[in-house]
C-alpha cells in the first residue's frame, strides 16, 4: 500500500476540508492518532494477493433496471421546502456565493 507515510496534521486538515468538517487543533492531533491507527490496521490487506482479481463494486447480481420516461414526481414545492432551515419564497437560501 502507498500509505506507509504516517498521517500528519496537514493531511488530516486536508481531508477534513474536503469533507467539509471543521476541526479544532486538538481534534486534528487526536484524529491523526485515531485515523493513523485504523489505517495501520487496514494495512493487513497488503498480505492478500489480488493479482488478476476484478474489483467488486456491488454484490447485486443483476444489471440496472430502467424506468419509463414518464413524469411521476415533482409538483410538491411546499413538501420539498418544508424541512428547509432557511428559505425565501420558494427558494432555498444560502450565504451569498461569490463566483
Amino acid at each position: 500500500m502507498a500509505s506507509a507515510a504516517p498521517l500528519d496534521d496537514a493531511v488530516v486538515r486536508r481531508i477534513a476540508r474536503l469533507a467539509r468538517i471543521r476541526l479544532g487543533d486538538e481534534e486534528v492531533s487526536r484524529l491523526r492518532g485515531e485515523l493513523g491507527a485504523i489505517l495501520g490496521w487496514i494495512e493487513q490487506l497488503n498480505e492478500v494477493d489480488v493479482s488478476g482479481v476484478d474489483p467488486l463494486a456491488s454484490v447485486g447480481q443483476a444489471t440496472l433496471a430502467m424506468r419509463a420516461d414518464v413524469v411521476t414526481d415533482g409538483d410538491q414545492t411546499e413538501a420539498v421546502l418544508a424541512n428547509a432551515p432557511a428559505r425565501a419564497g420558494t427558494f432555498y437560501t444560502v450565504p451569498k456565493v461569490v463566483e
Binding site: M1, L45, V48, V50, V53, D54, P55, L56, A57, V59
Partner: peptide
C-alpha cells in the same frame, strides 16, 4: 484493493 478483496471474500 478492498474491492478486489471483496471479490475474493464473495
Amino acid at each position: 484493493k478492498a474491492q478486489k478483496v471483496r471479490a475474493l471474500i464473495l
